[in-house]
C-alpha cells in the first residue's frame, strides 16, 4: 500500500505547478487551468487524509466537501471562460498582456 506521504508530496507538487502557472503564463485559458490545478491539489489532500485517518474507515465529511469543491470549481471555470469569451470579442486575443488598458 502506498503511504500517505506520497500523496502529500504529489499534492504539494501540484500546488507549486499551479502557482507557477498563475505567475508565468499569460494566456487567459491557462490562468484558469492554473486555478483548477491548485483546487485539485487541495482536493487530493482531502481525499488522502480522509482515507488514512483511521484504519478501515473513510470520513464522509471530506468526501462531501470534495464533491462540493469540484462543483464550485466548475462554476468558477464557467464564469471565467465566459468573461474570457467577451474579452476575446473586445480584443481579438487571449493574451493578458494585450489587455493593457488597466495596468496588470
Amino acid at each position: 500500500m502506498i503511504g500517505l506521504n506520497f500523496y502529500l508530496i504529489t499534492s504539494i507538487i501540484l500546488f507549486i505547478i499551479g502557482i507557477y502557472c498563475l505567475a508565468v503564463k499569460r494566456n487567459m485559458i491557462r490562468l484558469i487551468i492554473g486555478i483548477e490545478i491548485i483546487t485539485n491539489a487541495a482536493n487530493l489532500n482531502f481525499i488522502s487524509f480522509s482515507a488514512y485517518a483511521k484504519e478501515g474507515f473513510v470520513d464522509p465529511l471530506a468526501r462531501s466537501f470534495v464533491i462540493m469543491s469540484i462543483i464550485i470549481g466548475a462554476c468558477i471555470v464557467a464564469v471565467g471562460l465566459t468573461i474570457a469569451v467577451f474579452a476575446y470579442r473586445h480584443y481579438d486575443t487571449l493574451d493578458v498582456r494585450k489587455l493593457s488598458k488597466l495596468r496588470w
Binding site: L22, I32, N45, F46, I83, F86, A87
Partner: peptide
C-alpha cells in the same frame, strides 16, 4: 473596462480562495 477588470478580479480572488481551500485541507 468591466470585462478586463472582471477577469483580473476573477483570477486574483479565486487564487485567494483556492489558497484558503488548501489551508483547510491541511487543517483537516
Amino acid at each position: 473596462e468591466p470585462v478586463e477588470a472582471g477577469f483580473k478580479y476573477l483570477i486574483m480572488s479565486s487564487t485567494g480562495s483556492v489558497m484558503v481551500l488548501f489551508a483547510m485541507s491541511i487543517l483537516y
